[in-house]
Structure formats: structure tokens, C-alpha cells
Design a protein around this nucleic acid. Sequence first.
DNA 1: TCGTCGCTGGCGAAGTGTGC
DNA 2: GCACACTTCGCCAGCGACGA
Length: 417
Amino acid sequence: MGKPIIFHIDVNSAYLSWEATYRLQQGDPLDLRTVPSVVGGDPLTRHGIVLAKSILAKEYGIKTGETLYSALSKCPDLIIAKPNYLLFRQCSKALGDILREYSPLIQQFSVDEYFLDFTSMDLLFGDPLAIAYQIKDRVKKELGFTVNIGISTNKLLAKMASELQKPDKVHTLFPEEIPEKMWPLPIGELFMVGRATTRKLLSRNIKTIGELAHTDPRLLKAILKSYGLLIWNYAHGIENSPVRPGGRVEVKGMGNSTTLSFDVDNRKEAHLVLLSLVETVSARLRHSQYFTRLVSISFRTNEFLSYSHQRKLSQATDCTNEIWEIACRLFDELWKGQPLRHLGVRVSELCQNDFLQLSLFAKDYEKERKVDQAIDGIRERFGSQAIMRSSYLHSGLKSMTGGVIAEEEYPTMTSLL
DNA sequence: TCGTCGCTGGCGAAGTGTGC
DNA sequence: GCACACTTCGCCAGCGACGA
């Protein structure tokens, strides 16, 4: 087998928004409900304002978090559209179908990213660079949106390559190109180096990826523990995880949290918020056919102090009421009456539900599990708000809070590389 | 900025080894 | 058999990465 050739394909979502904005400015309004960019990543987009955030800020002075009324007063031509996740997922699947024509080894990394293992496929298709351009142009022509493609010998470098310059570009970042193309980049551009690590490295005068690469790994280990060695390896382009066809990895935990628009200062209301979070988390558990052995809750006060508490269960469960009861108990043990602005529920230590071991001493939740399954069925058919507990009526609270089940199909970044 | 999730390190309990 | 030191393991809280 020849040397590894890995592609990273990244959909230019934000730039689609930009393109739409540009057309808007040119007096050629576009019905944004018809383009996949409606699922862009910033909070503005999430609330349905489908223009690139940078353009909004630069051209119109509209900032994240600004009210719709205020945004419209600054930009009367602003088009508001409902985010269309279904369309975005369809586009993502269509992209995967095209990629599969070039290699059976493709891995969906997130809803808008793929890895493709092209190792030895050049014998069949020819020059990898030419094929990358071919894929990029086919996606644009057949699917109507642009992608960036990065090519290298491993997933890390391919991903770094695809982010070198956007949109609609193909870049290579082979190991011999690291000093020229990767080392001059600011330290924060390196995969797995976030805000906190950037601050720590800058305080030690490590400003670029190259400077990180030339830092004594023992020093990095002293500063950042094993994580220091990881990013030192990344700065040298060292990474060897395989492209995993199917993309699905073992989920280790799932949770939901919410920041409230008002202070919660009584136990009953907090329990209701916890229930709305547990409703979503437990539905995701059942959908993924998992049970949990560990329940944790967290909250943040209106003074931004965070607290968390968790408990190991003697018997694994996926039952909404059982998880909620535990979450409430944990909350009561931890809460000292402070006004709360943020509440979260998380389950981990997941196990497959076909190996459920019943305890002789545990309360029988079998009936409640049947109710859960019936409710899941109704919500699947008619929507999440089709059925709710009476306690939410006139409460001003949502009966279900948190993420969508479909997200479980895609692993998060850190669990992959 | 928010929501979600994985990882790390501190800490205490439990287990094991050694000397008396 | 007992006391103590050391090691291992699991629990827990918190941090930080990352996509939206």
C-alpha cells in the first residue's frame, strides 16, 4: 500500500450565507428558505436571521444578541427565514453519496464535514489533487453549494489544510509543507487549542504553531499535563487515527442544559426546569437504546458561580421519572437557595439496554417505561409539543428543553482525532 | 455566547504488602 | 493478628474544546 492520502471535505456554510447576503445587496433578493445556509452556526442564525454574522456586524452594525426589531431597523432588507435542518441534512447526505463514488472509506465527522481515505485509490482514479478539484466542482455544480477540501497523510493535517483559506478551495498540507504552511499560523488555529490554552501559551510567549513545535515538550507537559504533549504532536503533524467508515463512535454520555431568561428562586420551578431537561435527555437515551448508570446535574447562579453534583446508580435506567427523581434529589442536596440562571442535566456511563440487569430492591419502573415509550411514539409522530405534563400549563416553561435526537448520529470532534 | 460533551486531577475508600 | 504505609480504583467537580 502507498503512503496514506486523506481528504477532509468541509461545507462552506457561512459563505453560502455570505453569497446570499451579497445577492441581497446587489438587489437580487434570494429566498433563503431554499438554500442550505439557513443552518449556519451563530446565534443570530439560530434565531432565524440568515445572513453572515460578519456582514451584519460590518455593514449594518448588527451584533449577536440584538433583538429582531432592532436588527430590522438597521437593515430593512433583512430576510428572516426559519432554519431548515431537514434540507441541510439532505444536502449533507447528497455530499456523502458523491464522496462514496471515490472511496468506500468515508467518515462523517459532523453534519457538514467528511473525511475520505483516498489511500491507493489514486491507482484507480489518478492524481489526488485533480480528484479533489473534481469533487469540489461536482458538489458546486450538482448540489449548488461550495466545499473546501484539504489533502494530507492524516486526518489532522487534512483538516488543518481544508481550513487554510475559504471558500471553494483545495489545499494540501503534507508533512514536508508543515514549516511553510502551518507553523506561521497563530497558535489558536491549531486543532484542540482553544481560548484557555491559547491564553496559557501566549503568557509564555508561544504565539505561533511553529513556536509551539519548537518548545520543549517537557515544558508543555509541565504546563498542560498530557494535553501539552498532544498539542505538541499536533504542531508536528503527528496523528494516526484511521478514517472510520460509518462515523459513529460509542457515545459516552449525553446531556442538556439551558440558560434561563429569568432567575429561578424556588425549588418547584427548578424541578420543573430539570424535568424539561430530563424529558429530552431520557428520550435521547431511549432513541439510542442506551441506559445510564450515572446522573449529574449542574447549575449556575445569577452571579455566574457554577456547581455540579452527580450520583452513581445501582441499577441502570432510561426512565424519565426515575432520572428526574434522582436529578431533583441531587439538586436539593446542592442548592442553597441562590437565584439560578442556568440548569443542566447529564447522563453518562451508558450501557446497551438489551443487557439491563434488574435489581431486587429497586422500585419497579416498568409501567412508567411503557408510558415513556408511548409518549415517545406520539412525539415522534406529531412533534415534541404534541403531549406535555399538566404541570407545565400556565407555567411559562417549556415542557422539553435541549438538543435534537438526530445529533447523536454525529460524534463530536474531540472524540475522534 | 450557548449548549454539549470528554477529559483531568483531587480526594477518599478499598485493597495489598510489610514489619512487628 | 494487628497496625501502618503504599498503591489502586472509583467518585466527583470542574475545565475546556468545539460546533452552532
